[in-house]
Nucleic acid binder design. Structure first.
Length: 663
DNA sequence: AAGGAGGGTTTTTTT
DNA sequence: AACCCTCCTT
């Protein structure tokens, strides 16, 4: 009956602290998700209207899960529900309502990483800078840093540190002009524009301040300055803010997250109550000991030592393999064996790695052994080329002035509108300050194009207009319309043309089916489906999992994911693979500052503490990179976590490879 | 305009 | 090895 009885005293106190600023420093496996879910329930029991509670999570998946748990805790028929979502989703909600004040249309589009890259390319071309001098990716991260620092394109010039920045500042202006012209925003804009809104439009801020009485933030260690500013503004009237996090698990520094936000929280909010959760209910003592010992090598942290509540023998093993191929073979062979002989479910096992290139070999092996598996958080569904092409069609149907999407699909599949024609169209549009879509009929009428080209353009125009009408007239039948579209443009033929391997062709074609399914599910889930709604959801959900069918596989299969995506999760058995210098810590952070290596160490810490009962750390003695074989040396973290001095010189730093096969 | 060959580049992590 | 861009042929 009394749910709080299940909690330990510290947890209970956290759950019962219902007003004022509250900082919960929650170590790995200390039940923090449970605590803030219970706290949400407790707020409602103490008569906070549910819809006046905002709970911010790090991923959409975490949001869904928390909503589900809260629903179970509170009973099914809660008339009003708390808002549980990510920062970005919160900003979208606010902006849909208020963005016209900033001169954007309310139905602005959210562009994805791929769109950002092509915009960055265009911007560089505009200022005649070769991509060799400034890579689009580097430009984007510079722009991101400016935006997260609250710096407008026009002011970027004043925040220049070197020649690259100088070019980047010019490109930033172009980039933003293009974005605005196509009524689109990027991910950073969602935060940036919301902050602009709050700063420049007090009435708008007041509307949203009065909307929430209680705010909770999970994974607070990964909050960046802009997110902090937003939340501070939002809770200013009441200061009912509860943040939960662990400084040892801060792994998003490269995205502007600053550990200092969690360390300095009590200074920012005087009167903060601090509660520490150091009891670990997840890992065995051996696993936790490893984690504790490792993370003590970091200087910039709250000193704490988690207390294990589970004992074990043989729950940790170290393995060395000749190369990454054998590493994968051995790990998968062992997984196959424990599934068969130990009655272990594939879903209890996770393989964690640092980079997205690592899972490939494991994937092949798992498939060969016929073990069900899922790759989570890697290249997502919505990142695939064929999906992006089709989504671009849909976006063009919503707004043909969306230049980014229009240019992506105007000749995909090839329909006789070549690069030359596109160039003419763009030139004309730029010259007239118009849009390619509007310029097309003019160009046809002017008779400057060859008959074939005019014909092709008219056909394209006709296609778009027909589907526009269809989607608008029949939003409930979106899925069927998408099927018709795929058939009409014969996208399957395009796939067969692009990919020669039958296996590839099959896989890519299956993706099309999944898109149709995603649309179907969206329409089922949503009382009032619309194309705009679907596109928004797909943009925000981005890398998250999607679909019920996938959820099943997610439950039942071996899970493969990066250490970053593993944050917040736990598994009975964890294989932490590729424990090598250059991979973990990653090469890009080694040459860098010491704090970069500290972040890698935290990443390793996160990996270790995902394991409940069994942890296996493996490394390969050599590894193929860019088609070339390279020797690798053991990660310094292996020595550190076993209480040894790091030996950066020798290959035989790791002597602790006991051959005990454990199980 | 389309498609293929050849050459150069690339991999950190993601809302 | 995989991807993208450029150039060349048709």
């Amino acid at each position: 009956m009394d749910r709080l009885a299940e909690l330990n005293p510290a947890q209970r106190e956290a759950v019962r602290t219902l007003s004022g600023p509250l900082l919960i420093l929650a170590g790995a496996g200390s039940g923090k998700t449970r605590v803030i879910t219970y706290r949400m329930a407790e707020l409602i029991r103490h008569r906070t209207p549910a819809d006046r509670i905002l709970s911010v999570t790090f991923t959409n998946k975490a949001a869904r899960e928390m909503q589900e748990r809260a629903r179970l805790l509170l009973g099914k028929s809660l008339p009003k529900r708390p808002l549980v979502c990510t920062f970005h989703a919160l900003c979208v909600r606010i902006l849909r309502q208020e963005i016209t004040a900033l001169g954007y249309p309310a139905d602005f589009a959210i562009c994805d990483r791929g769109d950002q890259e092509s915009l960055a390319r265009t911007a560089l071309r505009d200022i005649r800078v070769s991509e060799k001098n400034l890579r689009p990716g580097d430009l984007l991260s510079r722009i991101s840093r400016w935006k997260m620092g609250g710096i407008h394109p026009e002011d970027a010039r004043d925040h220049v540190e070197n020649d690259f920045d100088f070019l980047a500042a010019a490109a930033y202006r172009k980039y933003q002009t293009h974005l605005r012209a196509s009524a689109s925003v990027d991910f950073d804009d969602l935060l940036f524009l919301t902050q602009q809104l709050f700063e420049g439009h007090p009435a708008a801020l007041a509307r949203h301040q009065s909307r929430f009485e209680q705010v909770q933030i999970d994974e607070y260690q990964d909050t960046n300055a802009m997110q902090f500013t937003l939340i501070e503004a939002l809770v200013r009237p009441h200061k009912n803010l509860c943040v939960v996090g662990d400084d040892d698990q801060s792994i998003y520094g490269w995205r502007g997250a600053e550990v200092k936000h969690i360390l300095a929280f009590p200074q920012m909010f005087p009167g903060t109550k601090i509660i520490r959760l150091v009891d670990n209910y997840r890992c065995t003592d051996q696993i936790l000991e490893l984690a504790n010992t490792l993370v003590r090598h970091n200087r910039d942290r709250h000193d704490k030592r988690l207390v294990a509540h589970k004992t074990s023998t043989n729950s940790v093993r170290f393995q060395e393999h000749a190369d990454e191929q054998i590493e994968a073979e051995q790990v998968v062979r062992e997984i196959a064996w424990i599934i068969k002989t130990k009655n272990v479910e594939p879903g209890d096992v996770a393989i964690l790695f640092r980079t997205n290139e690592q899972p490939r070999v494991f994937e092949t092996e798992l498939r060969r052994n016929k073990i069900p598996y899922v790759i989570l958080g890697s290249m997502s569904f919505f990142d695939r080329k064929e999906i992006k092409d089709l989504l671009s069609y849909l976006r063009v149907f919503v707004r043909p002035e969306d230049e980014i999407s229009l240019l992506r699909i105007i000749n995909v599949p090839a329909r006789g509108i070549g690069a030359g024609t596109v160039e003419k169209l763009v030139a004309r549009a730029v010259q007239q300050g118009s849009r390619v879509w509007r310029v097309i009929p003019e160009m046809i009428a002017a008779g400057e194009l060859s008959p074939n080209t005019s014909q092709a353009l008219s056909a394209f125009r006709d296609l778009v207009e027909r589907y526009q009408a269809k989607c608008a007239a029949n939003p409930r039948r979106l899925a069927t319309i998408v099927e018709e579209l795929i058939a009409e443009i014969d996208y399957e033929a395009e796939i067969d043309r692009q990919y020669k391997e039958p296996a590839q062709q099959e896989m890519r074609a299956a993706m099309l089916g999944e898109l149709v399914q995603a649309v179907t599910q969206y329409a089922e889930r949503n009382g009032d489906p619309s194309l705009v709604g679907f596109l928004e959801e797909s943009a925000l959900t981005g890398r998250d999992e999607e679909g019920d069918k996938d959820d099943q596989l997610t439950e039942r299969g071996v899970k493969l994911m990066t250490l970053h995506s593993a944050k917040g999760l736990e598994f009975n058995r964890v294989y932490l693979v590729g424990m090598e210098e250059g991979l973990l810590p990653h090469k890009r952070s080694i040459g860098d500052t010491e704090s970069a290596v500290e972040e890698e160490r935290r990443l390793c810490y996160v990996g270790i503490t995902r394991a409940r009962d069994f942890l296996t750390l493996t490394r390969a003695e050599c590894r193929v990179k860019w088609g070339k074989r390279r020797m690798s040396i053991p990660s310094r973290f292996l020595a550190e976590m076993q209480g040894q001095q790091p030996t950066l010189t020798g290959i035989e730093a790791e002597s602790e490879t006991d051959g005990d096969d454990g199980e």
